[in-house]
């Protein structure tokens, strides 16, 4: 098939004495090894988990290795004669993941992205680890699972969860959502699990702050329906968890 990036004739090894690098070849080498390096760097910084489920980390590193090898194989053609090819939109397109990955700060999905997705307990993938044992040790996903199954029976149980602050205008002044994204595969399928938290002045907490919420489960009326909520006794800011997403 056609290959717009590189249409030189079959290359014969050119003596390096020619010493004029083929800039398009150089660009391809940079694109390939740069994308490989980006993935490796994100992994080293623990940021790969903002994009994909950790079970794919090994595969992605393998892909980075293949990209390095492809780049390395291409490096040999560095001194082949310049072809008639010029820089095109295609190069811009292929550089896009690299540019965005380098220049946009790596951040997990947060409250801003939730505005477009909405928060709905019923559309969260149910946890495959059943919510058993002490409810005080459940995370937000286990709570979501348990609440779909058991509902009102959990009223009065102790709650101790970590989530980020999300404001919904339907909530009163003294409440906010503690939310957490649930990721099955990659950030594209993230669904949010969350519970309303009743906390005086909760509206003043900046969105996206990570908090640890302790309290008991209660039922409140929201838009005419009774929904579970946390009556908080303590809301404390914490660092972003190592894995910001939960995995079913």
């Amino acid at each position: 098939m056609t290959q717009p990036l590189s249409s030189q004739p079959p290359s014969t090894p050119t003596p390096a004495a020619q010493m004029r690098p083929n800039y398009l070849v150089l660009l391809e080498v940079l694109l390939l090894s740069g994308t490989g390096a980006l993935l490796t760097m994100k992994w080293l910084r623990g940021a790969l988990d903002f994009y994909i489920h950790p079970r794919y980390t090994g595969l992605v590193l393998l892909a980075a290795l293949v990209l390095f090898l492809m780049g390395g194989a291409r490096l040999r053609d560095l001194f082949t004669p310049q072809s008639a090819q010029r820089l095109s939109g295609l190069h811009l397109l292929l550089a896009l993941p690299l540019l965005l990955g380098l220049l946009v700060p790596a951040r997990p999905l947060g409250a801003e992205a939730l505005a477009g997705r909405g928060l709905d307990l019923t559309n969260v993938p149910l946890s495959t680890q059943p919510a058993t044992g002490d409810p005080a040790e459940w995370n937000l996903l286990q709570w979501a699972t348990a609440l779909t199954v058991e509902g009102d029976e959990l009223q009065g149980e102790a709650v101790d969860v970590v989530g980020f602050v999300f404001h919904d205008e339907r909530l009163s002044r003294d409440a906010f959502y503690a939310a957490r994204y649930v990721v099955t595969c990659c950030a594209a399928d993230a669904a949010a699990a969350g519970l309303p938290v009743l906390w005086e002045g909760g509206n003043n907490l900046p969105a996206d702050t990570w908090v640890r919420v302790q309290g008991t489960l209660d039922l409140v009326t929201l838009n005419g329906t009774r929904v579970p909520a946390i009556a908080a006794t303590s809301v404390a800011p914490v660092d972003q968890p190592e894995f910001p997403y939960l995995f079913p």
């Binding site: 994009y51 994909i52 993941p97």
Partner: peptide
């Protein structure tokens, strides 16, 4: 950006 890179990396 996170969603885009998520799909791409995956």
């Amino acid at each position: 950006t996170t969603v885009f890179l998520g799909i791409f990396i995956e």
